[in-house]
Every structure is written in C-alpha cells, then in structure tokens.
C-alpha cells in the first residue's frame, strides 16, 4: 500500500513538473505553484486535465482553489479516485 501511495505521489509530481516546466528538485510538497513557481491559471487547468487522464478520474473545477501545491493536488486526486 505504501509503495502504491509513493508511486502515485511520484506520478503526480512528474505531471506537475512537466506542466509547470520545473525540475523535480525545485518543488516541495508545500511550495506554491503560483506564488513560488510563477504558474498561471492555464497551468492549473492543465494539471487538472492531465490528472483526469492519467488516473481515469473526474475532478470538478471547483476543486482548483485547493490544488495550490503538491499536497493539495494529492488530496484532491485521492478524494476523486477514492484512494
């Protein structure tokens, strides 16, 4: 189970870094996409869409305000997927 959680977390990080054009070493679980990494609003939509595709889930756009850092993204995705 832990291995699976780690795998999911690492996949999410990979997606986020690819979209925001960041090195994985630059991003921490709590660093803010917009404030710390200069992301724009389209970036958040891209992350949401990419997660839906990768994990076969549906995430409501109303969840976007919670998806401000990796922890937030994981939480929202986990709820949507029922992990």
């Amino acid at each position: 189970m832990t291995a699976m959680v780690e795998e999911r977390i690492s996949k999410i990080k990979e997606i986020v870094c690819e979209i925001l054009e960041l090195d994985e070493s630059e991003v921490t679980n709590t660093s803010l996409f917009v404030d710390d990494h200069g992301a724009d609003s389209l970036g958040s939509i891209e992350i949401l869409a990419s997660l839906e595709k990768a994990f076969g889930v549906t995430i409501e756009q109303s969840e976007l305000p919670r998806m401000v850092n990796l922890d937030g993204v994981y939480e929202v995705t986990a709820e949507a997927a029922g992990w």
Binding site: I19, L42, I45, E46, A49, E52
Partner: peptide, 8 residues
C-alpha cells in the same frame, strides 16, 4: 471522454 484533451 470528449474533454480528455491537453488544454495547453
């Protein structure tokens, strides 16, 4: 899904 596109 029809909306499973890359928004970027």
């Amino acid at each position: 899904q029809p909306h499973h596109v890359d928004p970027a």
